[in-house]
Simulated assay, not measured.
Amino acid sequence: MAFDIFISHASEDKEIVARPIASFLDENTELTVWYDEFTLNPGDSLSEKIDYGLANSRYGLVVISPAFMSKNWPKKELRGLNALNVEGQNKLIPVWHNVAKEEVISFSPTIADVYALNTANGVSSVCDEIIKVVVSVETSIDELIDKAQKLLKDGEFELSVMSASKALRQHLEFIALQRLGPKYFRKKGIKRFSLLQLLDALHSKGGIIPKDSESEIDRKKLNSLRNIAVHGSKKKELGFKNSNAFIVQVRIIIRESKI
Score class of each variant (00 low, 15 high):
residue 143 E to A: 03
residue 18 A to V: 08
residue 71 K to N: 14
residue 252 I to A: 02
residue 254 I to F: 04
residue 179 R to Y: 03
residue 9 H to S: 08
residue 163 S to E: 12
residue 197 Q to V: 14
residue 236 K to A: 02
residue 130 I to W: 11
residue 241 K to F: 12
residue 190 I to V: 12
residue 68 F to P: 00
residue 85 N to A: 09
residue 17 V to R: 03
residue 154 D to P: 01
residue 89 Q to N: 07
residue 59 Y to R: 07
residue 88 G to V: 05
residue 141 I to S: 01
residue 87 E to G: 02
residue 223 N to D: 15
residue 246 F to I: 07
residue 248 V to E: 06
residue 13 D to F: 02
residue 149 Q to G: 07
residue 82 N to K: 15
residue 241 K to Q: 07
residue 224 S to C: 06
residue 21 I to L: 09
residue 115 Y to H: 02
residue 111 I to P: 00
residue 117 L to Y: 08
residue 223 N to H: 14
residue 101 K to D: 13
residue 28 N to R: 08
residue 25 L to N: 04
residue 69 M to Q: 02
residue 244 N to A: 09
residue 127 C to W: 08
residue 232 G to E: 11
residue 85 N to R: 10
residue 220 K to V: 11
residue 159 L to T: 05
residue 231 H to S: 04
residue 107 F to I: 07
residue 20 P to E: 04
residue 189 G to H: 08
residue 250 V to G: 03
residue 7 I to W: 08
residue 157 F to G: 00
residue 199 L to Y: 09
residue 235 K to R: 14
residue 44 D to H: 11
residue 129 E to L: 15
residue 202 L to A: 03
residue 235 K to S: 09
residue 36 D to C: 14
residue 55 A to I: 10
residue 17 V to Q: 02
residue 24 F to R: 02
residue 140 S to P: 07
residue 235 K to H: 14
residue 109 P to R: 13
residue 249 Q to R: 10
residue 48 E to Y: 07
residue 1 M to I: 06
residue 37 E to M: 03
residue 177 L to V: 01
residue 158 E to V: 08
residue 178 Q to L: 14
residue 25 L to I: 06
residue 25 L to A: 04
residue 201 A to E: 13
residue 107 F to K: 05
residue 15 E to K: 10
residue 183 K to V: 12
residue 232 G to Y: 12
residue 188 K to Y: 05
residue 139 T to L: 10
residue 107 F to P: 04
residue 111 I to D: 06
residue 104 V to Q: 00
residue 58 R to N: 14
residue 93 I to L: 14
residue 184 Y to L: 06
residue 93 I to C: 05
residue 29 T to H: 11
residue 104 V to K: 00
residue 85 N to Y: 07
residue 83 A to M: 10
residue 63 V to C: 08
residue 169 R to T: 04
residue 123 V to S: 13
residue 65 S to W: 08
residue 80 G to N: 04
residue 237 E to P: 04
residue 14 K to I: 11
residue 139 T to K: 12
residue 209 I to D: 05
residue 189 G to F: 06
residue 156 E to A: 13
residue 176 A to E: 09
residue 235 K to G: 05
residue 65 S to P: 05
residue 50 I to H: 02
residue 80 G to K: 01
residue 111 I to Y: 06
residue 174 F to S: 15
residue 151 L to C: 04
residue 118 N to V: 06
residue 158 E to M: 12
residue 222 L to S: 00
residue 200 D to H: 14
residue 88 G to S: 00
residue 78 L to P: 00
residue 64 I to P: 00
residue 67 A to L: 03
residue 160 S to Q: 00
residue 132 K to C: 12
residue 42 P to V: 05
residue 25 L to T: 05
residue 214 E to I: 11
residue 165 S to Q: 09
residue 74 P to S: 06
residue 17 V to D: 08
residue 166 K to G: 15
residue 40 L to G: 01
residue 173 E to G: 13
residue 26 D to G: 02
residue 102 E to G: 01
residue 192 R to T: 12
residue 233 S to P: 11
residue 15 E to A: 12
residue 85 N to H: 08
residue 102 E to P: 02
residue 78 L to H: 03
residue 221 K to A: 03
residue 233 S to R: 06
residue 55 A to D: 09
residue 116 A to C: 10
residue 102 E to M: 01
residue 69 M to Y: 02
residue 18 A to E: 09
residue 144 L to T: 03
residue 22 A to H: 03
residue 9 H to G: 11
residue 110 T to M: 13
residue 209 I to C: 10
residue 99 V to Q: 03
residue 132 K to W: 08
residue 36 D to S: 13
residue 75 K to Q: 10
residue 89 Q to P: 07
residue 74 P to N: 09
residue 39 T to P: 02
residue 232 G to Q: 12
